[in-house]
């Protein structure tokens, strides 16, 4: 219970920090992004109605109300998922754009991360079980090497080789342009075909980290007395490797999952840019190019929320597999 409370507190605190940073950054930076935006809107020939002006005021702060009042109003808007207007995608609101992009990213990054974590963990177990063998050496060296490339670089190479030269997969996009996004077998196949390369990129770039983490934990676990005793008990190797060594070794790896998730998501966002994938990464990229601050900040908040919630879910799963936490002992 204490564990659950602590994690809930962390969830709320992280969200609060993100929201507050989001509020403070435009107000503390030199210049006045709010005024600049109004000028841009007017220049582009979109005269702003009072409602739009109001939302810019709340998000970026152009009025002279006290900072505290501004903050209070801002929190109110954020809680109602009211992130204001997008400048670059006029007349869409930020919330509408995010609503459209989010499922693509959740699907792609979610599936790729689960595959990568499962694969990396399994390979880590294999490497540790045969430690100091050729298999181990090969696996860890490749893993360490893959881990040092930027995700988006892999994406570029994947597009070039498997898309451009071999024509195995489409070069970009989330689905064939012109296809109607309906729930049909044809469309789903199309989406999967477009998703394979980006997903592969994310898996290849992130699998090494899980592998090495799991291998190191597992080697520490293999030195424990209970593994030796399991061997003395005459249990089968496979049983010892999974129930005795891997089950214990995966616990710190799950804690690591939470810490690495932000990094994986960051890499995935850049991957989307390379593939022109219609998700949050691409949207963020366009927001950056067009200096669309409300959109940028809305995306930032939503990504933080997703990562933090994913972490929270993983923490709840952790409770299921570690009896020490279940029975109220502390984990750090």
């Amino acid at each position: 219970m204490r564990f659950f409370l602590k994690r809930t507190l962390l969830l709320i605190a992280t969200l609060w920090v993100a929201v507050t940073l989001n509020f403070l950054i435009p107000r503390l930076m030199p210049g006045n992004p709010g005024q600049a935006m109004i000028a841009k809107f007017t220049g582009e020939g979109h005269p702003l109605n009072p409602a739009a002006l109001h939302s810019i005021d709340i998000m970026l702060g152009i009025s002279h109300a006290s900072l505290l009042t501004q903050y209070w109003n801002y929190l109110g808007e954020v809680v109602h998922l009211n992130f204001g207007m997008s400048f670059s995608y006029f007349p869409y609101t930020v919330a509408q754009l995010i609503e459209r992009a989010l499922p693509w990213t959740l699907g792609l990054v979610g599936i790729a991360t689960i595959i990568s974590f499962a694969l990396g963990t399994a390979l880590g177990v294999i490497a540790a079980w045969g430690r100091n063998t050729t298999t181990d050496g090969l696996l860890t060296t490749i893993a360490a090497f893959l881990n040092t490339f930027p995700y988006f670089w892999f994406a570029l190479v994947a597009v070039y080789i498997m898309g451009f030269i071999l024509h195995w997969f489409p070069l970009s996009g989330g689905y064939t342009p012109g296809a109607t996004p309906v729930f049909s077998l044809g469309f789903i196949t199309d989406v999967i075909r477009h998703g394979v390369l980006p997903a592969l990129t994310i898996v290849v770039s992130s699998v090494g980290g899980w592998l090495i983490g799991m291998r190191n934990n597992m080697i520490n676990t293999l030195g424990e007395d209970y593994v030796l005793l399991a061997q003395a008990k005459g249990l089968k190797s496979r049983w010892i490797a999974t129930m005795y060594a891997a089950h214990n070794a995966i616990l710190p790896n799950i804690t690591g999952f939470g810490m690495a998730l932000g990094f994986v998501v960051a890499g995935s966002l850049l991957t989307e840019v390379v593939f022109g994938y219609p998700g949050m990464g691409n949207l963020l990229y366009n927001a950056v190019i067009n200096e669309d601050y409300p959109l940028m900040q809305g995306i930032f908040l939503v990504i933080v929320t997703c990562v933090v919630v994913a972490n929270f879910i993983v923490d709840l799963l952790y409770v299921l597999i570690d009896p020490r936490v279940r029975y109220g002992e502390e984990r750090d």
Partner: peptide, 14 residues
């Protein structure tokens, strides 16, 4: 059968 030096860690925690 074998009993190890101090049973502290001889049992699987999970």
């Amino acid at each position: 059968a074998i009993v190890l030096q101090s049973g502290m860690n001889a049992l699987n925690p999970v």
